[in-house]
Computed example of a mutant assay.
Amino acid sequence: MPTLISIYALCVVALFVKMLAISCYQGFYRISRLTFKNSEDAGFVGRQASPEELPQVSRAAQAWANDLENIPLFFVLGALCLVFNPPLLFTAGLMVLFTVARLVHTVTYLARWQPWRTIAYAVGIMCLLGLAAMVSMGALRHW
């Protein structure tokens, strides 16, 4: 049976790869269209800087910003869960469900699929609240 730390570690890696994929997605659109907002990037390929970012790049940047509002909280709450040894199956379920919800959120954000994006976001937030409850209960047990 996997340990909570191995599940947490795999979730962290999956979220890292997901965020890296968003960066690659942005790079793909910039390079394939040879459209860069920064003058040094445009100049590197012999182009003029674009006054605006490509729509796909802007959308991915918004998804990235949303990740930065949620994923660091998961990293902290998940690590704190490891300290307090909460119920394995429930906590592991929250970690895996959060990770899946963030993956779905990114796909639905880039594809502009509502209400699925909001549902994925809400599921992720509920998982964070559950992890916060596990940390709180653990801290109170050790008070």
Rank of each mutant, 00 (worst) to 15 (best):
Val107Asn: 09
Ala120Glu: 04
Leu129Thr: 13
Leu4Ile: 09
Ser58Val: 09
Thr91Leu: 04
Glu53Asn: 08
Arg30Val: 05
Cys11Thr: 11
Val123Gln: 05
Thr3Arg: 11
Gly93Pro: 01
Phe16Val: 14
Ala132Trp: 02
Ala42Ser: 05
Tyr25Glu: 13
Thr99Arg: 06
Val45Leu: 03
Pro115His: 01
Tyr8Ala: 06
Leu131Ile: 04
Ala111Arg: 15
Arg33Met: 09
Val135Lys: 08
Phe90Lys: 09
Ile125Gly: 01
Ala9Gly: 15
Tyr29Pro: 01
Met126Phe: 15
Val123His: 11
Val96Glu: 04
Glu40Asn: 12
Gln26Phe: 00
Gly124Val: 07
Ile125Gln: 10
Trp113Ser: 13
Leu94Ile: 11
Gly138Ser: 02
Arg30Glu: 00
Gly93Lys: 00
Gln62Gly: 15
Asn85Thr: 12
Val83Arg: 12
Gly124Tyr: 10
Ser32Arg: 07
Leu15Asp: 03
Trp113Glu: 09
Val100Glu: 07
Trp64His: 15
Gly27Ala: 03
Gly78Leu: 04
Leu82Cys: 10
Ala92Phe: 07
Thr108Asp: 07
Leu73Asn: 07
Thr35Phe: 06
Cys24Ile: 14
Asp67Val: 03
Ala92Ser: 12
Tyr25Trp: 14
Met1Trp: 11
Val96Ala: 13
Thr118Gly: 15
His105Val: 11
Ala139Leu: 09
Ala111Cys: 13
Leu128Tyr: 02
Ala111Glu: 13
Phe84Val: 12
Gly78Lys: 08
Gln114Phe: 08
Gly78Ser: 04
Ala61Trp: 08
Asn66Met: 10
Asp67His: 05
Ala65Arg: 11
Val104Asn: 09
Cys81Ala: 02
Gly46Leu: 01
Trp143Gly: 13
Phe75Arg: 04
Ala132Cys: 13
Ser58Asn: 13
Pro55Gln: 03
Asp41Gln: 08
Asn70Trp: 02
Leu110Asp: 06
Arg117Asp: 07
Phe84Ala: 02
Gly93Tyr: 08
Cys127Ser: 04
Val96Trp: 04
Glu53Lys: 08
Cys11Lys: 09
Phe36Met: 08
Glu53Thr: 10
His142Cys: 12
Asn70Arg: 06
Gly27Asn: 07
Gly78Pro: 05
Asp41Trp: 10
Glu53Gly: 09
Ala9Thr: 15
Gly130Tyr: 10
Lys18Asn: 12
Trp64Leu: 13
Leu97Trp: 04
Leu80Thr: 10
Asn38Pro: 00
Met137His: 11
Glu40His: 14
Ala42Ile: 07
Ala61Asn: 11
Gly43Arg: 07
Met19His: 14
Phe75Val: 13
Thr106Trp: 01
Gln56Lys: 05
Trp64Arg: 09
Gln56Cys: 05
Gly78Ala: 00
Val123Pro: 14
Val12Thr: 04
Gly124Ala: 02
Leu10Gly: 07
Ala14Glu: 06
Trp116Gln: 14
Val100Asn: 02
Gly138Trp: 02
Val45Lys: 02
Met126Glu: 06
Thr118Trp: 09
Glu53Ile: 03
Ala122Glu: 02
Met126Cys: 15
Ile5Val: 13
Ala111Pro: 00
Asp67Arg: 03
Val83Gln: 10
Tyr109His: 15
Arg102Ile: 12
Ala14His: 06
Gln114Ser: 12
Arg112Lys: 14
Pro87Met: 03
Leu77Glu: 06
Val135His: 01
Phe74Thr: 00
Val135Ile: 08
Trp116Phe: 15
Ile119Met: 06
Ala9Val: 14
Thr91Phe: 08
Pro55Asn: 05
Leu131Ala: 01
